[in-house]
Design a protein around this nucleic acid. Structure first.
Length: 193
DNA sequence: GGAACGATTGAT
DNA sequence: TCAATCGTTCCT
């Protein structure tokens, strides 16, 4: 396990979205540490009608236009938060939405936070994993590559042994046809089939 | 100032 | 299939 560097996030957003599969998202808090393996992502590009950045920079999406390797967190449907990682270079509004994790560590804490005992439903959706890992809106803009950050991402040292499925994204009304959703083939922890 | 909408989830 | 629930964005 080694922490991801800034250069990891500086690449094209679709590339980062695929490279993030199999990596480990680590969240430390007073309650304990939770870790999940990233098994599903979606990319949102600057010229993509489904992207929050499509109409230019605003207060909400400002992190998408900032440096790569930062947390872009947004509030949605009046009650949930979703977690993204910023990508590409500064000035280009792009990010990868983390859609699902396979719970690895701190599973009891995740169960408590999510108020369910069902392992397969702990992190099987973008808002679910934010709750399970205790990610807060205060983490907006956090540098995920910094040594002492509360939330970080690590890559596995072993060779990746899985196939990646590329398909259409979920829950959007525009840009429906773009194949910007990626997940590990055969994983039982994806958000939807 | 006002209104419509949404990168979701969980219950029915 | 549908309600919950409210910040963001866009229109007037």
């Amino acid at each position: 396990m080694k922490p991801l560097s800034k250069s990891f996030f500086k690449k094209s957003t679709n590339e980062v979205a695929k490279n993030l599969l199999g990596c480990y998202l680590v969240s430390k808090s007073k309650e304990g540490t939770t870790i999940g393996k990233i098994i599903e992502t979606e990319s949102y590009l600057y010229n993509d009608p489904a992207s929050h950045s499509f109409n230019g920079k605003t207060i909400r999406n400002e992190a998408m236009f900032g440096l790569p390797g930062r947390a872009y967190i947004y509030f949605t449907y009046g009650m949930y938060f979703c977690f993204n990682v910023t990508t590409n270079k500064k000035g280009i509004g792009e990010a990868v939405l983390i859609r699902a994790l396979e719970p690895i560590k701190g599973i009891n804490l995740m169960k408590k936070r999510r108020n369910t005992d069902n392992l397969h439903q702990l992190c099987s959706g973008p808002a679910k994993l934010v709750i399970a890992l205790g990610i807060k809106k205060e983490d907006y803009g956090l540098d995920l590559t910094k040594e002492n950050s509360r939330v970080k991402i690590f890559s596995q040292i072993k060779e990746k042994k899985f196939e990646i499925i590329e398909t259409k994204r979920i829950g959007i009304s525009k840009g429906k046809e773009l194949p910007h959703r990626f997940y590990i083939k055969g994983s039982k922890f994806i958000s939807r089939k």
